[in-house]
Computed example of a mutant assay.
Amino acid sequence: MYFQHSPRLRAEHPTLVAGVLYAEGVHGEPRTELPLADLLGRARQRLAGGTEAGFPEIQAWRRAFARMGLAPTKYRCAAESLLRRLRTSGDLPRVHPLVDLGNAVSAAYAIPVGILDVARCGGGIEVRHARGDERYLTLGGVEEQPDPAEVIFADPLGRAHARRWTNRQSGWSAVRDDTATILVVVEAMHDSAARDVPRLLDTLAEQLHRGWGASSRTTLLTPATPGWRVDVAAGSGVGATGSDVG
């Protein structure tokens, strides 16, 4: 299993700070209550001082979307959508314990968090510009085709696991009841992202250990080490293209 950003994408977004977390043994219900209320409470406290549109984390993604030719108020990064829903409805819907945890952590840090089922990723993911012949599956089961040059999470089988970068995740690798091994992708572009992304990964790793007894490997991706690789069959850990920070 691998994860990487294409050289072109890195060149177009030089402020990108990305991290990945790999964890096995996260099947079933958590053995203890997750701190969702505390995490969402942090987000609510911050929203009390102003809407999510003013957060530096969200503003950075809005600028990135504008550079990609996307209207920032029509296509929002996942973290902005979560914060907007939390602000307007007062809570986030419960979907699955892993997804609920990822959403709460994303809202608390105002940073997009994507959780992928490793068994359904086709062997690897590259964040790159679409050719236009890839296939995307919505969470509702409808198949779409990304636009040429749109930023997607692409696997070697020609499937897109996310559209418009951090806007919309796919049903191909969405967490299910039988999900046991996950890859979590965290991406940010604001000024303090180099500090905030590792902190977010540490928070998530701590809660995965608390809830499922899972040991996580976290890796910070940089222009010098833009990719991560793991031997899934052997569970041997981060490979030569990764930089282990956890």
Rank of each mutant, 00 (worst) to 15 (best):
F55S: 01
L34D: 11
P72H: 01
E80K: 00
Q45E: 15
G102Y: 09
P30W: 13
L70G: 00
L116C: 07
H13E: 15
L9D: 10
D117R: 03
L116T: 03
V118H: 01
V17C: 14
E33H: 11
K74V: 09
G41K: 07
L82N: 13
F55Q: 00
I111G: 06
L34G: 07
S81W: 09
V95L: 09
R10G: 01
V113T: 07
G49Q: 12
P14H: 09
E57Y: 04
F65Y: 15
L47W: 02
G50I: 13
L34N: 10
A53Y: 05
A53P: 00
I111K: 08
R67K: 14
R62Y: 06
V105A: 11
D100Q: 08
G102Q: 05
I115E: 11
A11S: 11
L40M: 01
Y22S: 09
L16S: 04
P30R: 12
A64L: 12
L116E: 07
H13G: 04
P97L: 10
Q45K: 10
G54Y: 10
L9R: 13
M68N: 02
L82Q: 11
R44A: 11
E24Q: 15
S81A: 15
A110L: 02
A37H: 11
E29D: 11
E57L: 03
P14Q: 10
A64V: 14
V105H: 05
D100E: 12
T15Y: 09
N103E: 15
D91M: 00
T51E: 06
S89H: 15
R46M: 02
P56H: 04
R62S: 08
L70V: 03
T73F: 03
R44K: 13
R85Q: 11
V95A: 03
R67M: 11
D91F: 01
A43H: 06
L16W: 09
P56F: 04
Q45D: 14
R94G: 00
A66C: 06
A108L: 13
L16R: 13
R87H: 08
R67I: 04
A108Q: 11
A43L: 08
